[in-house]
Design a protein around this nucleic acid. Structure first.
Lengths: 150, 150
DNA sequence: TATTGTTATACTCTATAACTATA
DNA sequence: TATAGTTATAGAGTATAACAATA
């Protein structure tokens, strides 16, 4: 006895819609992270930028925009605030002066280091619910989806 | 030879972070849908509300909020606009006057019907990239994740 | 007293176009 | 001419608290 994947009208159910299902799943995972970020005074976007910079080192802004799913105009504004807060620093690329290179500061890196354990706790809770293998499988499938050109 | 899942500093890579990976995957899937919605003059949120109402029939606002991942104050404002546009209608529940029951109108339903094929096209493109089985597997895993209480 | 929904408010992000500087 | 980034601007969503009506 399985649940039907379409409504009476023949439309696919929203739970079988990738965009909606990805969003709902993300909301579940994000809730505890939002609580953490609220206490840190960081937005989700700033956290993604810190994680991205911590991972990639010095990069230009277009790269951050792509990795952290932000538009360049948004990024300009957000980075201005983060620079004022001492979380990142910027300098123009000597080889191509159009480019601005961004790095995470020690202060920013400390925030990542001090809080990433909480993100790991959340992962552990998910793994205890779904099983470690299935989380791994899910991450693999998400990576594969990201590689798709639509 | 497999890619390491952690950075030099020992942090998990962002591509193995569920929140970030879910977001990036969603961005890939949403891009063509955003193009469609732009032409229709609908926001993503309004589209999710229409899909939800089309699927569930007459429901109270709290239910919509949960299904479409919106806060009630946002929903109040958005529904006001959608009612003015003739996409939905509202009436207070006779049995419990605190509740407001919302339904999709014929006009709203027509918009869903006329555009859902495009969402299906996108699914088809994803399936041609990932394989039908893997898309199904991904949807199953996402549903399982949504059931997690964190 | 608790719940459903609305209002108010401040903040933030999104989206697009126009613009500057550089290549 | 094309690209990287900024600025300007309008629109929309988020988040929280306070509130009204009802249960």
């Amino acid at each position: 006895m399985t649940k039907s994947n379409s409504t009476r009208s023949g439309y696919p159910r929203t739970s079988r819609s990738l965009p909606i299902s990805l969003l709902r799943a993300r909301e579940v995972v994000m809730q505890p992270i939002r609580d953490m970020l609220g206490e840190l005074g960081l937005t989700e976007q700033k956290w993604r930028i810190l994680r991205t910079l911590d991972e990639l080192g010095e990069v230009e802004q277009s790269t951050i925009a792509k990795e952290a799913c932000l538009l360049l105009p948004s990024l300009t504004r957000i980075l201005r605030g983060m620079e004022a807060d001492g979380l990142i620093s910027r300098q123009s690329d000597a080889k191509d002066k159009r480019r601005t290179l961004v790095t995470i500061t020690d202060k920013g890196r400390a925030i990542v280091r001090d809080n990433l354990h909480l993100a790991n706790d959340i992962s552990a809770r998910i793994e205890s619910h779904m099983g470690e293998d299935e989380v791994k499988q899910l991450l693999d499938l998400l990576e594969k989806l990201q590689a798709a050109k639509l």
